[in-house]
Computed example of a mutant assay.
Amino acid sequence: MAKAALARVLYPVERWLDRLRPKRRTDNLVIDPYLGYATASEIILRGRVLTALRRTNPSPEGSWWTNLRQMLSLFLTREVADICVTAGGTEARTDEEGYFDLHLPREDAAAGWVSVPVTVEDGESRELEALVPPHDPPFAVISDIDDTVLQTGAYSLLRNLWTSLTGNALTRHIFPDAVALVRGFEAAGAPVFFVSSSPWNLHFFLRRIFERHHMPKAPMFLRDLGLSRTQFISGTHGDHKGGSIDVLLAALPETPFVLVGDTGQHDPQVYLDAAKRHPGRITRVILREPGKGAGAKDKAAMKALEAIDVRVESARDFSKISPVG
């Protein structure tokens, strides 16, 4: 209800501001690159066309006010709709928020990371990367980010906002036990994917944090901060995460999945719903218990997962959890 009320107030304001802006530039357009992924038959390249890239210049000694201004600047993007983006003989057009997906034939692409040159109409050419999983991985992993691998405090709205807006890429911290667990998944031959309710504007920001902590590179499924007449920020946390899980299970239809999350934002229920939608596909759920730990609803969802033969492991940290079970 609060999000709907915000939408009713902010949507007309956004439309009014759009009318005040100068006409969109169609020269020197740039691509904000996102890490893509592959199915058995396709390589899917992802990105967003903007008039300029927004990047921060963080400092370990940066004040909270400097960090806040730099973080807010990441959201002041000018996206460009209905622009043609091409890779080889494949093309796509950007949607109203500037996003695009390019679906290329996988053909004989070897497992691992592939890099493909992508050109935007009246703009730059940029290499976009995609993870091509092996045809028969032992399992695949979908992991949450906030409070699962990245210290955030998402279980508390005020703490989440303060941490997210006043830190920077050099001060935010990854849980070392999460790095060890994900590296273990990678060593076992499992493709890893990250899902978060963070907006796509933070894709590069999150990649910088992950790289600094030596977290393996992996495709991210983030959320559009779209504003409509009735909705402020697209969908709910559960809807976004559940939809991303559905996409990835469809991409690897013969592969069992391990879901990693935390009890701070009701991941157990989201994962239970996904397991019910995809019987037998989710074999294991691993959960961090931040803050006060699992509540009654989370515990009930965890028991319900076990009742349908999903192995559930939960702890304050992942230090004693084996990546291969």
Rank of each mutant, 00 (worst) to 15 (best):
M1T: 12
L10T: 11
R15L: 11
L17C: 11
D18N: 11
R21H: 06
P22H: 05
R24D: 09
T26N: 06
V30H: 03
I31E: 13
P33H: 08
L35N: 06
Y37V: 07
A40W: 00
R46N: 13
T51I: 01
P58C: 05
S63P: 06
W65G: 00
N67F: 06
M71C: 08
L72D: 13
G88C: 10
T94M: 08
G98M: 09
Y99A: 14
F100L: 11
D108N: 14
G112V: 13
V116C: 03
V116K: 03
P117H: 07
E124V: 14
L131V: 05
P134Y: 08
H135I: 14
D136M: 04
A140V: 12
V141A: 09
V141T: 09
S143I: 12
D144Y: 01
D144E: 09
I145L: 09
D146F: 02
V149R: 00
V149Y: 01
L150M: 13
T152I: 10
G153V: 08
Y155F: 09
Y155S: 14
S156T: 10
L157H: 05
L161P: 04
W162C: 00
W162K: 12
T166L: 09
G167K: 12
L170N: 00
F175C: 10
P176D: 15
L181C: 09
G184R: 02
F185N: 03
E186R: 07
A187L: 08
G189E: 13
S196Q: 05
S197F: 00
W200P: 01
N201V: 07
N201D: 12
R208L: 13
F210R: 02
E211N: 11
M215L: 15
K217F: 01
F221G: 06
F221Y: 04
R223A: 07
D224M: 06
L227C: 06
G238P: 02
G243D: 13
D246Y: 00
V247P: 01
L248P: 07
L248R: 03
L248K: 03
A250K: 13
P253D: 13
P253R: 02
P253S: 09
P253Q: 08
P253K: 02
F257L: 07
V258Q: 05
V258N: 03
G261K: 02
H266A: 14
D267M: 07
A274Q: 07
T283N: 03
V285A: 10
I286A: 05
R288L: 10
P290E: 12
K292Y: 00
K292Q: 14
K297F: 04
D298K: 03
K299R: 15
V310E: 04
R311G: 08
S314Y: 00
D317G: 13
D317Q: 06
D317S: 14
F318I: 11
F318M: 10
F318A: 10
F318G: 10
I321Q: 03
S322D: 15
P323N: 11
